[in-house]
């Protein structure tokens, strides 16, 4: 039963991950996944928390990217709420690009 639950959570997690690939940094032209901006995705039933960073504090795209993340994740029918949490530690570096 527990194994089945883990598999299901993993699938939901992967669905969110795939959605986030659609969020493109318009300046760099790459997805926030490829840029290594997403640190963690937490799925708890229909509640999704995306823990991510930006290339620099005060990034002018911050609000747009946050909205974009919320928008694409909400497209998943099973999602009831999305919370995007911006963190600065560890700070983003280009080495995080995939």
């Amino acid at each position: 039963m527990s194994h089945a639950m883990d598999q299901e959570t993993l699938a939901l997690h992967d669905a969110v991950y795939q959605q986030l690939k659609r969020v493109i940094d318009p300046e760099v032209g790459q997805s926030i996944i490829k840029m290594g901006l997403v640190y963690d995705i937490q799925v708890n039933g229909g509640d999704v928390v995306v823990i991510m960073t930006l290339t620099t504090p005060g990034c002018p795209l911050g609000q747009s990217i946050t909205r974009g993340v919320e928008g694409v994740v909400k497209e998943l029918t099973w999602v009831s709420s999305v919370h995007v949490e911006i963190v600065w530690d560890p700070p983003w570096t280009p080495a995080m690009m995939r």
Partner: peptide
């Protein structure tokens, strides 16, 4: 171009067919 992009597409990140700033 960046401000123009933000003005026109800033609320549409993640939608298909959105151009890059460049």
């Amino acid at each position: 171009p960046f401000l123009t992009w933000m003005h026109r597409f800033g609320t549409r990140i993640g939608e298909p067919g959105i151009p890059r700033v460049a």
